[in-house]
Amino acid sequence: MKTDKTFNKLVSQSLAESIDQRSMIHLAREIIPDYNIQAYSNLPASLDIPRLDIARQIVDDMSRFNLLIPFINVFFSIQSKGYKGRKYKISKLRNIVVTLFDMGFSIDPVTGQVYEDPQYRISKNWGVLQQGVDYTFTFVWYDIVQSTIHLKKNSHRDVLSFYQKYHNLVRSATESRNGRIWHIEGDGVLTAFHFGDHSSKALYSSIEVLHSLFSYNTFENILDNPVQIRVGLNTGVTEYIDNHDMLKTKDPVMDTIKLENISPPNSAVATNTVMTSIEGVLASAFIPYDSKKSGSYFIYRLQWENS
């Protein structure tokens, strides 16, 4: 996302007032590894250049390549984590945060990272994730049980109408928790969660989709048979990739999709990587699951007493 000159000026001033010239350039190289300030400017090679000039040049370069928000994330992290063993206090932090809110961004309370506010924009990378960089995600894979039977037994129009409803249910359960739909292929939907307590958000979203489909079956199903789904959840580290075909080759994504082979209908199965820090209500709802396959899994089923 391109940023305006007033905001760039504010960030430049903050940068110049907070850290020295050499550290500024190192910080820029966290985002562009071979960043060379002279390549984009008329600034001399010497570091005797005023801090503000260097700061302006870095901020303008980042803005030009749509990388200013990721750069601000690195910049913000030095206040809490320090940088190369030194602690820094960011000047004008409050002004930058207020301006970011006005521009439609939020701050993740867990990581302190800036991301786009879904009320304003919903993009696949939350407006900030960079292509090729590793991040931790919780993935959710939804798959309709025996979808071909629905196609055979119902009119094309009814099936299309149901799919629209189904995709909307998944979208609502995902985006209301700041997750993103990454791919839809007919009855299969892949969603991703990155910010905040992403494991919990993914687990809650999967429960909501299971329940919404149950309500749909009970009150408004237009198809001949009830619709059942399988849900798989997995947390892992992988690089952010825009291309879906490449994304599907990444281990954490493949491991998520494979869960449809062990998840019973109307259930959500999560790997132990999702459940690592889960407690409270979700820990009561997802219980250990003996799938007879290697690995440790947890399951939530929607069931009612019979009598």
């Binding site: 709802a285 089923r301 929607l302 069931q303 009612w304 007493e305 009598s307």
Partner: peptide, 10 residues
Amino acid sequence: MKNQIINSQE
């Protein structure tokens, strides 16, 4: 109302 079963290993 019949109970929703949560936590069942069945």
